[in-house]
Amino acid sequence: MLGSRLITAIVVVVGVPAATVGYVALVEWLVGRLPFIWRRRLRPWLWAGPALAFLGVYLVYPMVYTFVLSFKNANSSKFVGIDNYKYVFTNASSLTTLRNNLYWLVLLAGAVVVFGLLFAVLFDRVRYEPVVKGVIFLPMAISFVAASVIWKLQYDYQPLGVAQTGTFNGLIVALGGQPVAWLVDRAVNNFALILVGVWMWTGYGMVILSAALKGIPVELIEAARVDGATEIQILFRIIIPMMGSTIAVVATTMVINALKAFDIVYVMTSGNYGTDVMANQMYKQMFLFNNFGVASAVAVVLLIAIVPVMLINIRRFRIQEALR
């Protein structure tokens, strides 16, 4: 046991890096033996080859395969047409899942942009900006699993009369209110989960938006002040319009994160009490119900929802290239 772990450790620290460098050394040795014309033709493919192979085997081929599976039955033995998609769009629990992803999408993107902008603008005015920025940013370093444990402590619920252990309920009871079962109560539980996502991602929005804010020429804002514009007017008439494309980047990134939300839901509620999301539904269809047809259909729906973002990215990349 200890011996095998020692071997693993050596492979991890020495073997793997050596293998990657060794690959290029081997390629160059082989290519060096070829006539010049073949050298030029072959070399790029050998350098890009491993990456292209990985992308093909782990991303492109599985996408096609999953698409085919989504038209097959639970154990992929026969084609069932669009039945799996019918299930995704008509089954009651599946519809709840779609609704929840919509909540995630709108609220996560909205809150991260609004809070990110607020923090960027506010922190820009104090000299200890790096410190407070670090505070908001720190949750980005930790796992969603750790964040879920942190927030379970916030949302913990004990019946009235027993000492409260959760921060929110402790506060509510101290003020004379009724404790709320944040993660079970269907009126609030989805929002409670989304708040964890907002806590994790606001730092991202703040950093990106803050960089854009610092790119706005100071003279422009000074000129507006001289002309008698209020700070609120400056924010809405100058800062926000000038940061439009950056706000779009943050919002689209959050849309993707919202669609792919999994860890928080999996750890905090397992998708129970009406909090399920698509990524968790897919996981359940795979491992709990062994229904690979529906699981694939959920994945395809997820992909289709993301395709517009993909096209926007490609278009933006093309524009950047044209400017180069």
Binding site: L59, M63, T66, I256, V298, M310, N313
Partner: peptide, 13 residues
């Protein structure tokens, strides 16, 4: 384009 592909599309295969 592959930057934003959801991992879910690849898990089963």
């Amino acid at each position: 384009g592959l930057l934003v592909v959801p991992l879910q599309m690849t898990l089963i295969p």
